[in-house]
């Protein structure tokens, strides 16, 4: 155990970015994604924006995991990636069903239910 710690300490620290910078970057990426979701009309582009938001959260998990030297955050990232893949499979299936009936993936034209 001691040896392991010594090895770890003797390794050069390549870069130490302050956590607040990372949080700033995460919030910027998250906001760009959110604006994309709210302003775009193409379903595929909206979905891409959501993926971007998910990945910005992953970045935050990794940053905190490194700050506290805790593996939990990195484990969480794997869960997020796996779930995002499952979501993408179902979402794209829904988009295909939508396109069969509407012949478009533009959310502005998908408005059967407006009164």
């Amino acid at each position: 155990m001691n040896n392991l710690q010594n090895i770890h300490h003797s390794m050069p620290i390549v870069s130490q970015v302050p956590i607040l910078y990372v949080i700033g970057l995460v919030l910027i990426l998250f906001s760009i994604g959110l604006i994309g979701v709210l302003s775009r009309r193409n379903v595929i582009v909206i979905f891409m924006s959501v993926e971007m938001m998910l990945n910005s959260v992953n970045l935050l998990f990794i940053a905190f995991a490194r700050l506290y030297g805790d593996l939990g955050g990195e484990v969480m990232v794997f869960f997020v990636m796996a779930v995002a893949a499952a979501e993408a499979a179902i979402g794209l299936a829904l988009v295909i069903a939508l396109h069969r009936n509407y012949k478009t993936v533009d959310m502005a034209e998908v408005a059967e239910l407006k009164q």
């Binding site: 979701v37 959260v57 955050g73 829904l94």
Partner: peptide
């Protein structure tokens, strides 16, 4: 179709909020 896609997109958006909250 419309119900499915709307529920999907907004639900996934809510999931990102949940994850950001958990991360914080």
């Amino acid at each position: 179709n419309e119900a499915g896609i709307k529920y999907f997109l907004l639900s996934v958006l809510a999931t990102t909020f949940l994850l950001l909250g958990i991360a914080f």
